[in-house]
């Protein structure tokens, strides 16, 4: 493979993910930012309004999760019939459940469970997907066949029903089991993306050179190929983080998660099972739902920012302001 053909991305992969921007053409940061000891990709992310917004919201949610026991005002598992089914007030900011537990405290402490569950599952699947995706693409042969086979399985079997069925088989559903089954399921999806990217790197000169120089396979995978895929792996992690949080909360909402813990999905499950909506109570589902929606929206924005940073074509410069003006002042279409 000559250097004239630097990008031999296969067609599927090209559609799935935009081509990467060569680091040389990235806009040089100016002034204050240059002195900040941040790696370039972090600065790029912060310079993009979408990912900046997403990072700020996610950061706030992480702060809430870390200091959850200090912020929570009540015992999240309190049982008190006198306090039950109260609408939001100063004492109970988000109201109370049918059992009289404080929903604000449940949401605050639930942030911890939901974020840890999502992040752990995402980490597990990213590690697996990176290792097996690149290994498959690089080694080829039966290893690649196995990786390909497993990812094809997940093309035809819908993830949520699969997870519902697997959770049904499990008698005890602890946090660790949840992380394992969600992480394993999502790893297959992520491996497909990373394998495609690694395939395009496999025949590049620097990889061939390392091979000829007698480098070991793990060294080529982790030392040569992986560093060139960092932005893709990061994007994959954010994507899986987003899916994992949703999936974990979703399974809990269906009553098939770790129901002993306080988490957003569990609060939503009890709101649904006690048919609070039908009784006109909006607070038991609105607040945990909003917390979940805000978190996943932040991750989606980070992802969109990552996309724009690596694919300048998707960026629209300064048209938002014009569109707002035309909408407000009615000065015709832009």
């Amino acid at each position: 493979m000559s250097q004239i053909q630097p990008l031999t991305v296969d067609v599927l992969e090209q559609e799935a993910l935009p081509a990467e921007l060569p680091p040389l053409t990235a806009p040089a940061p100016k002034g204050r930012l240059r002195r900040a000891p941040l790696p370039q990709w972090v600065r790029l992310l912060l310079s993009n309004p979408k990912s900046r917004g997403g990072l700020i919201v996610l950061g706030a949610m992480i702060v809430v999760a870390v200091f959850a026991p200090l912020i929570a005002t009540h015992d999240p598992n309190a049982f008190s019939l006198i306090d039950s089914r109260q609408s939001p007030s100063w004492n109970h900011l988000f109201g109370t459940t049918d059992q009289g537990a404080d929903i604000f405290s449940q949401v605050v402490l639930g942030a911890r469970t939901s974020l840890i569950l999502g992040a752990s599952a995402a980490l597990l699947s990213t590690v697996l997907a990176t290792t097996f995706g690149i290994l498959g693409a690089y080694a080829g042969g039966w290893i690649d066949d196995v990786v390909n086979f497993v990812t094809n399985v997940f093309l035809v079997i819908p993830t949520i029903p699969l997870l519902v069925v697997v959770s049904g088989y499990l008698k005890t559903r602890g946090s660790l089991t949840m992380i394992l089954i969600i992480g394993l399921t999502l790893a297959a999806l992520e491996a497909r993306i990373l394998r495609g990217q690694a395939l395009s790197l496999r025949n590049r000169d620097f990889v061939q050179a390392a091979k000829v120089a007698g480098e070991s396979t793990p060294r080529i995978i982790f030392g040569e190929i992986m560093p060139n895929m960092v932005s893709r792996i990061a994007a994959g992690f954010v994507l899986v983080f987003y899916v994992a949080i949703l999936t974990a909360a979703g399974l809990e909402f269906l009553g098939l998660g770790d129901m002993q813990h306080t988490s957003w999905g569990v609060t939503l499950y009890w709101a649904q099972v006690n048919s609070t909506v039908l009784q006109g109570e909006w607070w038991p589902f609105l607040f945990p739902g909003l917390a979940l929606a805000t978190t996943v929206a932040a991750l989606v924005f980070i992802l969109a920012g990552l996309d724009e940073v690596s694919n300048p074509r998707l960026r629209v410069e300064r048209t938002h302001r014009r569109a707002w003006r035309s909408l407000l002042l009615g000065k015709g279409r832009t």
Binding site: L246, L268, L292, W324, R333
Partner: peptide, 25 residues
């Protein structure tokens, strides 16, 4: 950069990013 691009697309994307069960509730 038109009205559909700037308002309808972000609105649809946020709806799509939200958990379906929350939107349903």
């Amino acid at each position: 950069g038109g009205i559909v691009d700037n308002f309808v697309v972000p609105a649809m994307m946020s709806l799509g990013a939200f958990p379906a069960f929350f939107t349903s509730l």
